[in-house]
């Protein structure tokens, strides 16, 4: 690790101003991505703006038909929240499948979305539920938020403060973990909200999380696993590495999508 200065702002405004003013500054949330890269000297920010003491960034709240989760809410809080379990159980289940207990107790939803790891789980839920990412500056629909591998619509001094999820009729997430890292080798999130159906894939795409429109169309006719039978995703555009070839990932998308639809009921 290189030397750095740690700042502990109390408000989002202070955090944003530190981020804008200090050269080579980075936000620190759960630190479960940032700290390992710093330890390996792959990242060397001069300033860390620690969000742990910032007011109003964590918490879970259901208002009307929308579930709001603060950016600093940890995975285990989402996993075990009665509010989430009641309103969007698939989201609680997804959070419970992230990494291991240590990761779930430190990692945050804001950090995960801002990081947009192509194998992370939360991007699948955000896009799969049609969430809105709320920052200190604006509201960004999930459809416009994820821009590629580790790329998002966030500007350099923009801070995710909340994520808003609409309540849906049905949803499920099926994850095929990479046995070593436990990240998703492939994960498929499906949801149905009145006429809107989303089938979202994480882990597999060469360009990060994406929707499978062909599957969505098929499910619009009838929301059932059978509707997906025989449908495949082309291997073109899939990621390929020692853990899974493009063909295998494409194949798994079909299998997991059917299982997810079945699980969504």
């Amino acid at each position: 690790m290189y030397a750095f200065t740690q700042h502990r702002p109390a408000t989002v405004r202070q955090a944003a101003s530190l981020l804008a003013k200090q050269e080579e500054a980075k936000l620190l949330a759960g630190g479960h991505t940032l700290i390992p890269t710093m330890k390996l000297r792959l990242a060397g920010p001069k300033h860390l703006v620690d969000l742990s003491k910032v007011e109003g960034l964590s918490g879970i709240e259901m208002k009307g038909r929308s579930l709001t989760i603060g950016a600093m809410t940890t995975h285990v809080e989402v996993q075990t929240s009665p509010v989430v379990r009641e309103n969007i159980p698939a989201l609680a289940e997804l959070a419970g499948k992230i990494g291991d207990p240590a990761v779930r107790h430190r990692g945050t939803i804001g950090g995960s979305l801002a990081n947009n790891d192509p194998n992370a789980d939360y991007p699948a839920a955000a896009l799969g539920l049609g969430a809105t990412i709320i920052t200190n500056k604006r509201r960004i629909p999930a459809d416009e938020f994820f821009k590629g591998l580790f790329e998002t619509a966030l500007e350099p001094d923009e801070i995710v403060t909340k994520v808003q999820f609409p309540k849906v009729n049905k949803a499920a997430y099926v994850k095929f973990p990479n046995p070593a890292s436990r990240y998703a080798l492939v994960g498929v999130f499906v949801s149905k909200r009145s006429s809107e159906i989303r089938v979202v894939v994480t882990g597999a795409g060469a360009n990060g999380v994406f929707r499978v429109t062909a599957f969505e169309e098929a499910l619009k006719k009838r929301f059932g696993a059978k509707s997906l039978e025989g449908l495949t995703v082309p291997a073109d555009g899939m990621a390929s590495d020692i853990h899974g070839s493009a063909e295998y990932r494409a194949h798994l998308i079909g299998v997991l999508a059917r299982r997810a639809v079945a699980a969504a009921g």
């Binding site: 070593a180 990240y183 020692i242 853990h243």
Partner: peptide, 11 residues
């Protein structure tokens, strides 16, 4: 070494 860490080498 492609499997240079526990993220890629599975115990």
């Amino acid at each position: 070494l492609v499997t240079g860490s526990l993220m890629d080498y599975c115990m």
